[in-house]
Design a protein around this nucleic acid. Structure first.
Lengths: 145, 145
DNA sequence: TGAAGATACTTTGATTATCAAAATAATTAT
DNA sequence: ATAATTATTTTGATAATCAAAGTATCTTCA
């Protein structure tokens, strides 16, 4: 089944790029002074339990140095704030501000709408095939570690 | 169907990141002095018909200036070469060298293996359903422009 | 209990990717 | 032939990234 593999590969590559562009466009339309990386950083802070620099950096798979630079900017722009932990003064706790919360909310709404529209066009069989294929994909990557 | 939406969203986000990491790892293991962006640039040159700077840049959705900088490096590293068109001397034609061909070959093998593993557990009907589901996805993004 | 080592973070210095706008060179049109 | 257009490069700026060095704080153990 050489052809179906090629079709799938092309579709996946295309979708990958379309998702990226779609998200870029969403941010542009948000009219907010943030990059995709910054939105994902804010989002990671929102969803991580222990809001330390280390935890957030590890969640994002970036180094602490990179996160420090990014948080400097986000703090300056008013989307997050830093506080020294009182328990261990080496530790820095990051929290998102109300302005940050708003962005997280809108980013999640974007994802929700995207998924809603995707599923809307699928019948039950297609939905199941998609879920199964995605499971395979995840298994595949997980096994590759 | 709130649940399936969440399942799909989480799966998509997870896969997105796993694909990125997997590709990064692939490149690292290739032991080759190239970034993901550079591999995609080489790949774009290989697959584009008219191998001009403009065509390649447009194919990659980057500006000509960005491509110029990237091609400078790739040329220095010996993966591509530049030639002025004899027909229109404003035009620069880029071609990949044998070293570039090798990378393209390995990158394609990576994609092929990934797809093979994905469809390994799907029967023909599911495969077709998946293709249709992905087509819907593409339509969705295309309509959003 | 106080020095040595470990940990959490920031700073520094470098590279890559990116863009917009200005510059250059060549072609086409008036 | 002069003006306008086109293809590319250069320039100047910014963001994202890393590794390695530096700083401050905590923990351990002798």
């Amino acid at each position: 089944m050489k052809e179906i593999h090629d079709v799938l590969n092309n579709a996946l590559v295309l979708i990958f790029n379309l998702v990226l562009k779609s998200e870029e466009k969403f941010i542009r339309n948000l009219g907010v002074n943030l990059s995709i990386a910054e939105i994902h950083t804010i989002d990671a802070i929102a969803k991580v339990e222990k809001k330390t620099m280390s935890e957030v950096a590890s969640n994002l798979s970036i180094t602490l140095g990179t996160l420090t630079a990014s948080i400097n900017n986000l703090e300056k722009k008013g989307y997050v704030e830093r506080n020294r932990s009182q328990v261990d003064r080496r530790v820095v706790l990051v929290n998102i501000t109300q302005r940050g919360e708003d962005v997280v909310e809108q980013h999640r709404a974007f994802h929700k709408e995207m998924i809603k529209d995707i599923v809307a066009n699928l019948n039950t069989r297609e939905e199941l095939a998609l879920v199964k294929a995605l499971d395979n994909l995840i298994d595949y990557f997980m096994s590759k570690k």
